[in-house]
Design a protein around this nucleic acid. Structure first.
Lengths: 162, 162
DNA sequence: TATTGTTATACTCTATAACTATA
DNA sequence: TATAGTTATAGAGTATAACAATA
């Protein structure tokens, strides 16, 4: 029959595409004076201003120390301030400065523009279908690693994808 | 103003998925004693044993210096040898050692197993559709900084093979 | 002079472990 | 003791610039 379907593995394809997208996105954000992690952190802060750093790190799927590292840079750049919360002085309340707010708006505009460009010529149905498959790929990658190393008893009650 | 309950931008979705896939793939390759760049380099070497490092780097979308960096590690680990080609002593001929060959086989098995797991529950049609969209996303990200039907000189005759 | 590849250096993102400070 | 966060350190991956060797 036709051609040998010898397509690259789907994981490699996603990964390669992501690399291209990530670089282009990084360039777009850099032109707006930011970077991908800074943008993601600003976004998370906006959506959940009273979260703790631990929860933010979980949300961003990075370690607390990694988040601290980025926050240090953002504080040095004058985008945020950190002070201890009065009611629980272990947690640090993070606040956007005026400059941080401006950066958020700039980066949001750059991200929106980038996304508009990205999806040009792609229908909503196609995008929705891709999202579905991406979800399943992520599930397949994460769950069910290997018989060994698993040792995970089948006892989940609240494993909501998405 | 805007209605916030939107889906995340498609670029972010691809990027986030890729992060999950990449980490899982990295773990799978690490269990087989490798890493993603090493696997990709081994694969490229197998497919094109007589290429130059410059072409390999282009193919892998990394810089020559980056490739040298990885090759140094692979040589240190006994996976490859490098010697100058007799007919053009500027180019280095890269050869897999026996150990490199064994590593290739191990990593190939791990990659195949990972991919099998990854695509479980996803139909061939779905995968094909995703590939198509991924291609277009990469094109949109790379080219056409502003696609407002701007100057697209009609000079391509073979834009989309399928 | 052009091409091939390496070295030196540094940056970004991430991680682990040990630590401080609160509770 | 447990929790929130930081510091110190390291490592992987990448990049740029200057360089050496060869043509």
């Amino acid at each position: 029959m036709g051609h040998p379907p010898q397509q690259p593995p789907i994981g490699l394809h996603v990964s390669r595409t992501a690399k291209v997208l990530s670089r282009a996105f990084g360039r777009a954000l850099a032109q707006a004076g930011g970077s991908e992690p800074v943008w993601l952190i600003l976004l998370a802060l906006k959506r959940n201003p009273d979260s703790t750093q631990r929860r933010l790190a979980d949300e961003l799927e990075i370690r607390e120390a990694t988040l601290t590292h980025h926050l240090n840079g953002m504080e040095r750049d004058g985008l945020i301030t950190r002070r201890r919360a009065p009611e629980n002085r272990r947690v640090h309340r993070i606040t956007l400065t005026d400059e941080g707010q401006a950066a958020f708006l700039r980066l949001r505009a750059a991200a929106a523009e980038f996304d508009r460009r990205l999806r040009s010529g792609i229908s909503g149905d196609e995008l929705a279908a891709v999202r579905t498959v991406l979800h399943r790929l992520a599930e397949n990658a994460d769950g069910a690693p290997d018989p060994d190393e698993a040792g995970r008893p089948p006892c989940f009650s609240e494993e909501r994808p998405h």
